[in-house]
Amino acid sequence: MLLEQERRDVCLTARSLASVAAPGESVTVSVRSGDLVVVTPHGVAPDQLQPADCPVMSVDDRVLEGRHDPAAETTLHLAVHRGAVEHGRDVTAVVNAFTADTVAVSAVLAELPPVHHRAAALGGAIAVTPYTTYGTGEISDQAVKALKGRDAALLANHGGVALGRDLEQALENLRLLDWLCSAYIRARQIGEPRVLSEDELARVRARDAHGWAGPDVF
């Protein structure tokens, strides 16, 4: 079986999101190994996935192996993988999911502002794409644009998408995106959130480059 370990990892990642995403096929996970991509299939609930269910594809859209068709969002995933290769980004994994908070924010805002310093880890303010039908080339193009210089994006009235150097990091980034959406929603219930500036985010990134003691000299 091609990319057996990668298929197992895709299953585990999808299952871990099953409890926080919308019912049904609301999670799509992919991981690239060279010119091959493993993606979650169409028609199988995340908590029931088995490695053999997951299609193995080439980055140019050919299905090579798998007992189910690829998920509808595979077009988006492959476009993101191709863009990462083209621009030399250290990205091999993509996760997107329809969680309540990412859908809510993506249905209202044109951009998720950084209200917490952890937003710096994703690139700062998170772009929300214009609305377009899922599983199309148009949403794929919009996602690639929104992810330029970012490790996450929101797809309008749809949910969130996150990248990583591996599946563990992509999943962590998706969970961080979901948490930032939740924090923003709660802040808006109290009042107008205070938004961190680009200078403040730059100082956070500089601080992240140091250990627990920071840049201070003893």
Rank of each mutant, 00 (worst) to 15 (best):
residue 15 R to L: 01
residue 16 S to C: 14
residue 17 L to D: 05
residue 18 A to I: 05
residue 19 S to R: 04
residue 19 S to P: 04
residue 21 A to Y: 02
residue 22 A to M: 12
residue 24 G to N: 03
residue 25 E to G: 10
residue 26 S to L: 03
residue 27 V to K: 15
residue 28 T to D: 03
residue 31 V to I: 14
residue 34 G to Q: 06
residue 37 V to F: 08
residue 43 G to V: 13
residue 43 G to E: 11
residue 44 V to D: 10
residue 45 A to L: 02
residue 45 A to R: 03
residue 46 P to N: 05
residue 48 Q to N: 12
residue 48 Q to F: 11
residue 49 L to G: 02
residue 50 Q to W: 00
residue 50 Q to N: 11
residue 51 P to R: 05
residue 52 A to F: 08
residue 53 D to F: 14
residue 57 M to F: 00
residue 60 D to T: 08
residue 60 D to G: 05
residue 63 V to G: 12
residue 69 D to I: 13
residue 70 P to Q: 09
residue 74 T to M: 00
residue 74 T to K: 01
residue 77 H to G: 08
residue 78 L to I: 04
residue 81 H to S: 07
residue 82 R to F: 09
residue 83 G to K: 10
residue 83 G to C: 00
residue 83 G to Q: 03
residue 84 A to P: 06
residue 84 A to E: 03
residue 87 H to Q: 07
residue 90 D to H: 11
residue 90 D to L: 07
residue 91 V to D: 01
residue 91 V to R: 11
residue 92 T to N: 10
residue 94 V to A: 08
residue 95 V to Y: 15
residue 96 N to R: 09
residue 106 S to E: 05
residue 110 A to T: 07
residue 113 P to L: 04
residue 116 H to F: 05
residue 117 H to T: 00
residue 119 A to D: 02
residue 119 A to T: 09
residue 120 A to Q: 00
residue 123 G to W: 11
residue 124 G to F: 04
residue 125 A to L: 06
residue 126 I to K: 11
residue 130 P to G: 04
residue 132 T to G: 14
residue 133 T to C: 03
